[in-house]
Structure formats: structure tokens, C-alpha cells
Amino acid sequence: MDLLNKAQPKQVIAYADWLAAGAPAVAAVKVEADVNVPELLPLASGCTEIQIEFPVFADGRGFSIARLLRREGYTGIIRAVGDVAVDRVAFMQRVGFDAIDLKEGQQADLIPQLIERVQIHYQTSSDGAGPIYTATQNS
């Protein structure tokens, strides 16, 4: 379960502070769900890890932020933090998260089976799966 075992960064800087410091190369930057995405994208490659905050589990902005980071070519770690539960991990992984900090009280051991449960993906996303019509299986 790589998702849970990515080593925690030594230091995490809030996005605003990082910007104020001139966006230096750092270990990890934490962005909120309302981050200015066009501003973030060109700067992202300067950090090893980007943490995206989920203020409440129903707030889905983080999914698009991760997707856009990957599309922009960001290859560092994208970590989901905040109100993160096992039932969203499969979608998180698809859009480009590769590290997850679960909130308290979650059954981490369920994650592999929850990811496995739905294997058919109709859409393209950051996981490299093309849309279903590009796969050979759909005949």
C-alpha cells in the first residue's frame, strides 16, 4: 500500500508563505482547496511534494487540482490531507494522488479491496487509463 507509506516530508510550508518567500525549492507545500490553480501550476515543479487539503469530504475541488497538476507534468508527490476517508481513495488515486493521510478512525486495511472493487473506468484520468473506447476490451 504505497499510498499510505510515502514518508512524511520533514517540513511543510503553507502555500501563502511559500509564495511570499518567492517559491523556493522545498520539501512540501500545502495548498487549500481554493488555491489559485493557474498560479500554482507553473511553480509546482519546485517542490518535492504538494499536499492538497480536503476541508470536508464533500468538497471535491482537490480532485480537479490534482488532475491539473499531473496534466501540467508535475511528477512529485501529491498527498491528500484533511477530511480523507477510505471510500474516496480509489477516485483520488485515479486523478493523481499518490499519498494519502487518512483522517482518524479509518480502516486503512480496506483500501486495497476498495480500489480493486470497481475495475472498469469509462473515463480518461491521470492514472494513464484512456477512455473506455481506446481500450481493446470494449467490443
Binding site: F91, V95, V118, H121, Y122, Q123, I132
Partner: peptide, 13 residues
């Protein structure tokens, strides 16, 4: 229908 079904990015609009 197919594109929107279980779209990973747009399930929490």
C-alpha cells in the same frame, strides 16, 4: 452516460 458514470474527478461537485 458512460463518460459521466463514476467519473473520478466530478463525483463531489
Amino acid at each position: 452516460r458512460q463518460w459521466s458514470s463514476l467519473h473520478p474527478e466530478f463525483a463531489y461537485l
